[in-house]
């Protein structure tokens, strides 16, 4: 019995050392969670016969991993939650440009101007509020209103979260470093409760721990799907600032990939109508391909005020964003 166990262990370890030599396969690094994207990948495998191996981790983590791996990265495709992570890989010239046809599927404001990565779904920054405690008319027009003492202790933020940091990066680009630091310090002075992630903010609002919070729009819709009676509601800022930005999740193909056909097929698949509908219906994100409707509880994406910002620049201010968050004492 003991020998059998040892033999089994050796075999299992040996098996992992040799990678699968499947003919049509693809390795995807996904900063999007397994819960959100795996059903789609399952369908892709079924439709194309290409087997996909996915590495799930945080978007910034995977971007850093790809930088370390350099030109011998095992990844063929990088799927990220935010433009900053995609931009980091693009800046390091590790992406190969996407085809004109792929780029034409999505409005250019949601993709890299040089065509290295493509937005696949949109996520709006919103204020989630507890409808039993907060009257939406009280809510400010922009995120700057939350530094007012009247909001002291009432706004949950997730300063270490990728979406929040991307928002801070955008704010640095739009309002400048000093204004951004002042805002962060204002939030810190206001004793804004900090959470590890967006989902925790939404849960806290629904549980009545905190009145409002800055989050992405779809978390609330998921909470409503789990429990339709939760009191949380989304509030969209009326004025175009970093706080009202629609941040795309996106995809790029690595220059080092030798499976470009499969990678192309995967990118095509993500921006086909069926997948876009999946984002709308299952993950409650905004589909980015025109003509595919978003969830009907959401305002149409065109009506969301959008600041004029080249999203590919977000990568350049990401580390600065973390520095400012730390400097403001929010880390």
């Amino acid at each position: 019995m003991r020998r059998l166990l040892v033999a089994g262990a050796v075999l299992a370890l040996a098996a992992t050392a040799c990678s699968s030599s499947d003919d049509r396969s693809l390795t995807v690094y996904s900063g999007r969670s397994e819960e959100l994207i795996q059903p789609l990948i399952d369908r892709f495998e079924e439709e194309t016969g290409i087997s996909v191996t996915v590495r799930y981790a945080g978007s910034a983590d995977l971007a850093a991993t790809i930088l370390e791996e350099g030109s011998s990265s095992p990844a063929d495709v990088f799927l990220a939650q935010d433009p900053a992570s995609l931009g980091t890989v693009a800046t390091a010239e590790l992406f190969t440009p996407l085809s004109e046809e792929q780029r034409s599927r999505v409005p250019s404001r949601f993709s890299d101007p040089d065509g290295y990565w493509l937005g696949i779904s949109g996520r709006a920054r919103v204020v989630v509020y507890d409808s039993t405690n907060v009257d939406p008319s009280e809510l400010p027009q922009t995120e700057d209103g939350f530094t007012d003492p009247s909001w002291s202790g009432r706004v949950g933020i997730a300063p270490t979260n990728g979406s929040f940091l991307a928002f801070v990066s955008a704010k640095i680009l739009l309002d400048g470093r000093d204004a951004t630091l002042a805002w962060l310090e204002g939030m810190a002075e206001n004793q804004s409760p900090t959470f590890p992630k967006n989902s925790a903010i939404v849960t806290a609002v629904n549980d009545g721990q905190v009145d409002t919070g800055l989050a992405n729009h779809y978390y609330l819709l998921r909470a409503l799907a789990e429990d339709p009676e939760v009191p949380g509601r989304n509030h969209f800022f009326a004025i175009a600032t970093a706080g009202s930005l629609v941040m795309p999740a996106g995809v790029g193909i690595l220059a080092s990939s030798e499976r470009t056909d499969e990678a192309d097929a995967f990118v095509d698949f993500l921006v086909d109508d069926a997948s876009q509908r999946y984002f709308a219906e299952e993950t409650f994100e905004y589909p980015l391909v025109p003509g595919v409707p978003a969830d009907d509880r959401l305002p149409p994406i065109e009506t969301i005020p959008t600041p004029d910002l080249d999203l590919s620049l977000l990568a350049t201010t990401l580390d600065e964003a973390t520095d400012l968050v730390a400097e403001a004492g929010l880390l």
Binding site: G58, T160, A315, A321, T322, V325
Partner: peptide, 11 residues
């Protein structure tokens, strides 16, 4: 938390 923040929040 700070270590995680530094790890996940920057390149």
């Amino acid at each position: 938390r700070v270590i995680y923040a530094q790890y996940s929040g920057r390149i």
